[in-house]
């Protein structure tokens, strides 16, 4: 039975086919699906990580299948502490749409939500690349996006880092008091509290 101090909710958005579900499956199950076994797996994944000795349960919502339906996806933004904006480095179009995804997140999510830009499919041959990491980095900087990483859900490169670094950023905000635990912040306290940050102690435990 494991215990955790916080539940943090993430949302993954981006164009269809950029690898949102694959990133999630790679992170939660450590496997890559090239359409060989399961297509969708889960609507959301959970995994425990530890940041600064705190057990954090990440609850990650995948918006696959709803990319063209902006009003529907809006309901997921509310109450997300972390938002991963994913594009495919070999599809320029998916990068150009990031500004629309960013505008959606900024409009509907909590103002303190940690936004992360993710260029997926970094395992692909350099000749297929249509977005340089410099350009994406510049975009992130210009638009006030806290983090930018290139990942490969296929080779698992940087996948762990994306999720963990986002959690570290959120955790910093919890510590500094920017985020408080409630329904709309996307952070809830876990059932077991050892932290000096804890605001309440809850009985019972689950794993």
């Amino acid at each position: 039975m494991s215990s955790y101090n916080y539940i943090i909710k993430y949302i993954i958005v981006g164009d269809s086919g950029v690898g949102k579900s694959c990133l999630l499956i790679q992170f939660t199950d450590k496997r890559f699906n090239a359409g060989r076994e399961l297509t969708i797996g889960v609507e959301f994944g959970t995994r425990f990580i530890s940041v600064d000795d705190k057990q954090i349960k990440l609850q990650i919502w995948d918006t696959a299948g709803q990319e063209s339906f902006r009003s529907i996806t809006q309901s997921y933004y509310r109450g997300a502490a972390g938002a991963l904006l994913v594009y495919d480095i070999s599809r320029r179009e998916s990068f150009e749409h990031i500004s629309t995804w960013l505008a959606d997140v900024r409009r509907h999510a909590n103002p303190h939500t940690t936004i992360v830009l993710v260029g997926n499919k970094s395992d692909l041959d350099e000749s297929k690349r249509q977005v340089t990491s410099e350009e994406a980095e510049r975009f992130a900087k210009e638009n006030g996006i806290a983090l930018f990483l290139e990942t490969s859900a296929k080779s698992a490169s940087n996948v762990e880092e994306v999720f963990v670094k986002t959690a570290e950023n959120v955790y910093e905000k919890i510590k500094s008091g920017e985020f408080t635990s409630n329904e709309t912040s996307g952070i809830r306290l876990g059932p077991v509290q050892k932290s000096s940050l804890s605001e309440e102690t809850q009985g019972g435990a689950c794993c």
Partner: peptide, 17 residues
């Protein structure tokens, strides 16, 4: 709330499947 969103999520997953 996780369950309450499952209905619309499911509708979006059918085309993928």
């Amino acid at each position: 709330n996780g369950y309450l969103t499952k209905v619309t999520t499911r509708l979006g997953r059918y085309p993928i499947l």
